[in-house]
Amino acid sequence: MRTVEVVAYDDRWPEMFREEAAAYRDLKRRLAERFPADIAAYVAGKDAFVKALEQRALAWWNARRDSEKYGIDEKRG
C-alpha cells in the first residue's frame, strides 16, 4: 500500500498536459462519487490512467533531457 505520493514538477507541465490534467480531475470526481467510502476502489480506478500518463511524462522528460544534453532545439528537432 502506498502511503506517500511523490510528484516531480516542471513549470511547463501544466501547459503541456492541460487536457490530461482536466481528464484526471474528472476521473477523480467520478471515482469519488462512485466509491465514497472505498479508498482502495478509488485508487484502483485511477491506476491505468496514472500509469499511462506517467509513461507519457517520462517520455517527455527524457526527450527534454536529451535535447539539453545534446544541444537539440526542441522546436526544430
Results as ranks from 00 to 15, higher is better:
residue 2 R to W: 00
residue 52 A to M: 07
residue 59 A to V: 08
residue 8 A to W: 09
residue 38 D to N: 12
residue 27 L to H: 00
residue 27 L to W: 02
residue 38 D to I: 03
residue 30 R to H: 07
residue 64 R to K: 06
residue 51 K to F: 06
residue 36 P to Q: 01
residue 25 R to D: 04
residue 52 A to S: 07
residue 58 L to G: 03
residue 73 D to H: 12
residue 18 R to A: 08
residue 16 M to G: 15
residue 17 F to N: 05
residue 70 Y to G: 00
residue 56 R to F: 05
residue 74 E to C: 07
residue 26 D to P: 09
residue 53 L to R: 10
residue 32 A to E: 11
residue 49 F to W: 05
residue 31 L to P: 04
residue 56 R to K: 15
residue 4 V to E: 09
residue 68 E to L: 14
residue 71 G to F: 05
residue 23 A to H: 03
residue 69 K to N: 00
residue 37 A to N: 02
residue 35 F to T: 06
residue 2 R to C: 01
residue 42 Y to S: 07
residue 8 A to P: 00
residue 58 L to P: 03
residue 30 R to A: 09
residue 55 Q to I: 03
residue 34 R to S: 09
residue 69 K to W: 15
residue 46 K to S: 12
residue 66 D to R: 01
residue 2 R to A: 00
residue 36 P to Y: 05
residue 57 A to K: 13
residue 19 E to I: 04
residue 69 K to T: 15
residue 1 M to Y: 02
residue 71 G to M: 05
residue 28 K to E: 06
residue 12 R to N: 07
residue 62 N to G: 00
residue 2 R to T: 01
residue 74 E to P: 15
residue 34 R to V: 04
residue 61 W to S: 04
residue 61 W to C: 02
residue 41 A to H: 03
residue 42 Y to C: 00
residue 57 A to R: 11
residue 15 E to K: 12
residue 44 A to M: 13
residue 57 A to L: 10
residue 29 R to S: 10
residue 45 G to F: 08
residue 8 A to H: 11
residue 11 D to Y: 09
residue 44 A to Y: 12
residue 50 V to N: 07
residue 12 R to K: 09
residue 36 P to K: 04
residue 4 V to T: 12
residue 43 V to T: 00
residue 49 F to Y: 15
residue 3 T to W: 00
residue 37 A to I: 02
residue 20 E to W: 09
residue 46 K to Q: 12
residue 41 A to S: 15
residue 26 D to G: 06
residue 17 F to D: 00
residue 16 M to S: 13
residue 15 E to S: 09
residue 35 F to C: 10
residue 37 A to D: 03
residue 3 T to Q: 09
residue 4 V to P: 01
residue 31 L to C: 10
residue 61 W to A: 14
residue 55 Q to T: 10
residue 20 E to Q: 14
residue 16 M to T: 11
residue 48 A to S: 10
residue 33 E to D: 14
residue 44 A to T: 05
residue 1 M to C: 08
residue 14 P to K: 04
residue 71 G to I: 10
residue 71 G to D: 05
residue 56 R to Q: 15
residue 14 P to M: 02
residue 43 V to A: 02
residue 10 D to I: 04
residue 41 A to Q: 13
residue 52 A to K: 09
residue 27 L to A: 03
residue 23 A to L: 01
residue 16 M to W: 11
residue 14 P to D: 01
residue 9 Y to N: 04
residue 33 E to H: 13
residue 66 D to I: 02
residue 7 V to E: 05
residue 51 K to Y: 00
residue 19 E to P: 04
residue 47 D to W: 01
residue 44 A to I: 00
residue 52 A to R: 08
residue 9 Y to G: 03
residue 32 A to N: 04
residue 77 G to R: 13
residue 68 E to D: 13
residue 64 R to T: 08
residue 62 N to S: 02
residue 11 D to P: 11
residue 66 D to Y: 03
